[in-house]
Nucleic acid binder design. Structure first.
Length: 950
RNA sequence: GCCUGGAUGGUGGAACUGGUAGACACGCAGGACUUAAAAUCCUGUUCGCCCUAAAGCGAGUGCGGGUUCGAUUCCCGCUCCAGGUACCA
């Protein structure tokens, strides 16, 4: 009677529940109970002091957008949570925090449209995110939460900026050094023996000259050395948005967001001297365990080339010369021209009167071209002769000077020496303009194209004739250095990072101006709070939004810097704040940093490869140079989770003779018989590609009386993989999945979908299998009436084998981040135990521990039902694997003939090879396949296979 | 163009160091239970041939070759897909 009434009750409470007889496993009640328990008991609070070894599992923290989490966002968080929970069971003190990268454009755009302060929008979005995250049962220590837009957080972002401002990079020591040391050096030795990474226009001066400088002159000079510095840079200025955009925010010459035109504009901008760290950023890649494509991307981004810089004198210009960078100094005798970027500073001076018209026309044409579209870049060769000649540094011969747009102003010196025999671009250029093409190696094959080979011996090359590549390079560098015409040089593609945005919703730069000189505010005045403004738009005079703040002056008199920091500022150091999120004396205490040191495992998307991950490594190295942190690299191991794509569903509306839509829809399998148009349909009313017709009528009231042509009584939808977006009706909210199936099912299903690193479309088909698994698991502990029924009997051999198989499997899988295979193995284990009718406490209790990282709620509940203290499962011990339970005495060998499997033969594992051969060859069934042919050889691999070769 | 991944049933995927390809799950088909449906349980499910069936035979991991007793796995050549990057001297 009780059972029946409880069923009845269940039906009343949850009429929408698909499985009304699920009287046993009530995921809603269980999950709510444990989430509350963990919060109330601060179960996942972690201490900065422990006898246990430390382990730091970090997720890339989200930007809290207004749309909330969709089902793709938590993929990485689930994986890292499984890993963190597993490490806790393995006896580690695990730091597993979460926070928000809460400065950013969408909140500001919303503020521009609605006038609502971005802080309010952000606060609401964070609350929504938190609720959604809590629903999934993550084991985050929320007491360490950080928000980059919180003044208590950005105080330290500003503080780090101040340290960067107050530092320079000393190449002799190969590290950053406080600027005071540079000032002290200037006072005693001037610029002598200063090896700094600095601007190109620094002056040389003696100690006396330095001392004679005014304070303003000193500051101006020092700015050229600081790691955070102000300089005029060409930026992507978007007038419509009133801001500067990063290169990756500009697509095809228009802004990625909104598609507004973008122009190149010179502006004074804060920059970060990341190029000082180029070599260390490159070297460090060898010491970290990151996915190869990511390492490769950073390597390409840094773009190191080893070569030489060579100076070509230009007699017509007196003492001025053209400097080129080349990676192939060995080809210098093959030079037939110098080619400059049209923007090169010497172009004006070099152009002769005769050539002026042509050159000007060409420059005008290039400008238009770059404005138009670089994507429409045809391989057309173009260029113009300046009329001037340079002198070849070794032969003294005249080398014509050209300009062409295939030479980029921003790379190297903006000028190249053209060697048509060795470089394809130079070859095309030379053949187009009829310049001579001189072979320089006896191994070169110039049949219509350049040959960049380094093999062979040099010819037509005077000084290096007959030499090999290595000999030639050494000889030439030595020679060029001795005549002052060149030197070995390393060039990097990476540029210094622009660090200012003309935006409101970001960290204010803690700088004010006094007589045009930027100065830091006093440390005691941190944080420099974002001022209130009446509108979140640039001022009428084109100044950033902060220019609207009333009476916003340092000490009431000095103007503040009006740009704010870029989106990556806060995320470049946030993982240290988690170590000691409440600390007030520093960004984290020395003790906390000394204990946690670095991130052991970092999980996030590969889209941050060259942004966040590069800048974070840079700031980390800087903080280490200054003695604030301990490790050269912040993220020891990194895993990229794949992107979850959308999977859209379609219905097919039949078209009439004129191509107009009718009120009839045809099922996917029959649509080829009709003229149809595909319409997106909400994936949430489609199950296994079968459309719920009633829901469809509600979804599209305009089709309430539509007719449906069905197949097998069903309307089957078509599907396609697209981006997940509202307009495509393919967004799935994790909350809906959790409501229907529970968080444990969601967690396991997201893992079950496939390898973590792989991108895949979200598809709810198949989630039932995981839900069924959890109910089956629950049933192991209960009798048919739903009462706990666990036996204390000793487990059987088969039961122990099933348990220890999964203990081993999960251990191996988690360590190699293969979470999908664990889920399958759990299913196999529960299937086996169900077949064995196993209800032994000794088995089930350990199984709870093994499954806990994947399905923490159901296992906590069962753990408690088994009589364990409530909520102690998170810190239980992972069961020890005992291989003896897996030992087999015999094995069913697949017996193959010439590699083709023909039969199975069960044999004891301790047989000697000769005995196995005998048993196999004497087998009657085998004779059929041998067809009387003589046996050449028998391959026997113990516990694997027997192969008879005839 | 270059760099990095990837391609396995109707679907998601498994096979970890060369050793029974398709585990596990979805879907589908059939059956049990039920007045019925849902849920649950059971059976089958790579394809082709043969066939009442059982059994059997053949093919098969994008395509073409190779190494090997044995290849989804290693080597060579190609096709397609995804991500990154692009006159980088």
């Amino acid at each position: 009677m009780d059972v029946i009434s409880s069923i009845a009750q269940k039906i009343v409470i949850s009429p929408s529940l698909p499985y009304t007889v699920a009287m046993d496993y009530h995921h809603r009640a269980i999950e709510r109970k444990w989430q509350q328990f963990w919060a109330d008991n601060r179960t996942f609070r972690v201490s900065n002091a422990s006898d246990k070894p430390k382990y730091y599992v970090l997720d890339m923290f989200p930007y809290p957008s207004g749309a909330g989490l969709h089902v793709g966002h938590p993929l990485g968080y689930i994986a890292s949570d499984i890993f963190a929970r597993y490490k806790r069971l393995k006896g580690f003190n695990v730091l597993h925090p979460m926070g928000y990268d809460s400065f950013g454009l969408p909140a500001e755009q919303y503020a521009i449209q609605t006038g609502q302060h971005p802080a309010i929008t952000t606060e609401a979005n964070i609350a929504r995110y938190r609720e959604q995250l809590d629903n999934i049962g993550f084991s985050f220590d929320w007491e360490r939460e950080v928000r980059t837009s919180d003044p208590l957080f950005y105080k330290w972002t500003q503080w780090i900026f101040m340290q960067l401002f107050n530092a320079w990079y000393d190449k002799s020591r190969d590290c950053a050094v406080p600027i005071d040391k540079l000032v002290a050096h200037f006072e005693t030795h001037g610029t002598q023996n200063v090896h700094a990474v600095c601007d190109e226009d620094t002056h040389f001066f003696t100690a006396d000259e330095w001392k004679a400088f005014t304070d303003g002159e000193k500051q101006r000079e020092l700015l050229k050395y600081r790691l955070a510095y102000l300089r005029e840079s060409t930026v992507n200025w978007c007038a419509a948005l009133g801001t500067v955009l990063a290169n990756d925010e500009v697509v095809n010459g228009v802004s990625e967001r909104g598609g507004y035109p973008v122009e190149q504009k010179k502006m004074m901008q804060w920059s970060m001297r990341i190029t000082a760290y180029a070599e260390r950023l490159l070297k460090g890649l060898e010491t970290i365990d990151w996915p190869e494509p990511l390492v490769e991307m950073q390597r390409n981004w840094i773009g190191k080339s080893v070569g030489a810089s060579v100076r070509f004198a230009v007699p017509a210009l007196g003492d001025r010369s053209i400097e080129v960078f080349t990676t192939r100094v060995d080809t210098i005798y093959g030079v037939n021209a110098l080619v400059l970027a049209p923007e090169h500073e010497l172009v004006g001076a070099l152009t002769t009167g005769e050539q002026k018209a042509e050159v000007d026309a060409y420059i005008a044409q290039t400008k238009k071209k770059s404005e138009l579209d670089r994507m429409a870049d045809v391989k057309a060769v173009s260029g113009a002769f300046t009329g001037s000649y340079a002198a070849h540094p070794l032969t003294g011969k005249d080398v014509p000077i050209w300009i062409a747009d295939y030479v980029l102003a921003g790379y190297g010196t903006g000028a190249v020496m053209a060697v048509p025999s060795g470089d394809q671009r130079d070859y095309l250029f030379s053949s187009h303009f009829g310049l001579p093409i001189i072979p320089i190696s006896d191994a070169q094959q110039l049949d219509g194209q350049a040959d960049p080979t380094k093999e062979g011996r040099y010819i037509n090359s005077d000084l290096i004739n007959g030499m090999t590549y290595a000999e030639a390079v050494d000889t030439l560098i030595t020679k060029l250095e001795s005549i002052g015409a060149g030197k070995a040089m390393i060039n990097y593609r990476m540029r210094d990072a622009i660090f200012g945005r003309q935006r409101y919703w970001g960290e204010p730069v803690p700088v004010y101006f006094e007589g045009g000189i930027p100065r830091l505010i006093d440390e005691q005045d941190l944080p420099l709070l974002l001022p209130e403004v009446d509108k979140y738009l640039p001022t009428e005079t084109g100044e950033p939004p902060l220019g609207r703040a009333k009476d916003w002056k340092y000490h009431g008199t000095f103007d503040y810097e009006l740009s704010t920091m870029p989106g990556w500022a806060g995320s470049s150091w946030y993982w240290y704040r988690y170590m000691d999120a409440q600390h007030t004396e520093a960004f984290a205490s020395k003790e906390a940093i000394g204990y946690w040191k670095d991130v052991d495992l970092y999980i996030g998307g590969s889209e941050h490869a060259t942004g966040h991950l590069l800048y974070s490594r840079f700031w980390n190295k800087f903080l280490k140079d200054m003695g604030y942190v301990m490790e050269e690299e912040p993220f020891k191991k990194l895993i990229n989770q794949g992107m979850i794509q959308g999977r859209s569903n379609f219905v097919y509306r039949v078209l009439d003779g004129e191509g107009k839509g009718t009120n009839t829809f045809v099922s996917h399998g029959l649509k080829d018989d009709y003229r149809t148009i595909a319409l997106h349909v909400d994936v949430n009313i489609v199950s296994n590609d079968v459309l719920n017709l009633d829901e469809f009528r509600k979804f599209r009231p305009d089709f309430a009386d539509a007719e449906f042509i069905l197949e097998n009584g069903k309307y089957v939808c078509g599907h396609e993989v697209e981006k997940m977006s509202k307009s495509k009706y393919n967004v799935v909210n994790p909350d809906d999945i959790i409501e229907q199936y529970g968080a444990d099912t969601l967690r396991m299903y997201e893992m079950f979908l496939g390898p973590l690193e792989q991108s895949k479309p979200w598809n709810t088909n198949g989630i039932e299998g995981v839900y069924k698994f959890l109910r089956k698991f629950w049933k192991l502990f209960h009798d048919a009436a739903g009462n706990l029924a666990v036996s204390d009997e000793a487990p059987s051999k088969a039961e122990l084998k099933a348990l220890h198989k999964i203990i081993k499997k999960v251990e191996e899988d988690v360590e190699r981040f293969s979470f999908n295979t664990s889920v399958s193995s759990f299913m196999i284990c529960v299937n086996e135990l169900t077949d064995l009718k196993c209800n032994k406490r000794a088995i089930l209790q350990e199984l709870c521990v093994v499954l806990q990282p994947y399905a923490p709620h159901i296992t906590e509940e069962l753990w408690e039902l088994l009589g364990n203290a409530s909520g102690t499962l998170s810190y239980a011990s992972y069961p020890a694997f005992n291989p003896s339970y897996l030992v087999e005495s015999e094995f069913a060998y697949p017996v193959s003939v010439n590699g083709k499997t023909r039969m199975n033969l069960t044999l004891p594992l301790d047989l000697a090879q000769s005995e196995v051969e005998k048993a196999v060859l004497e087998n009657e069934d085998l004779q059929r396949y041998l067809e009387g042919k003589p046996v050449k050889k028998v391959i026997y691999v113990k516990g694997r296979i027997v192969n008879v070769v005839v």
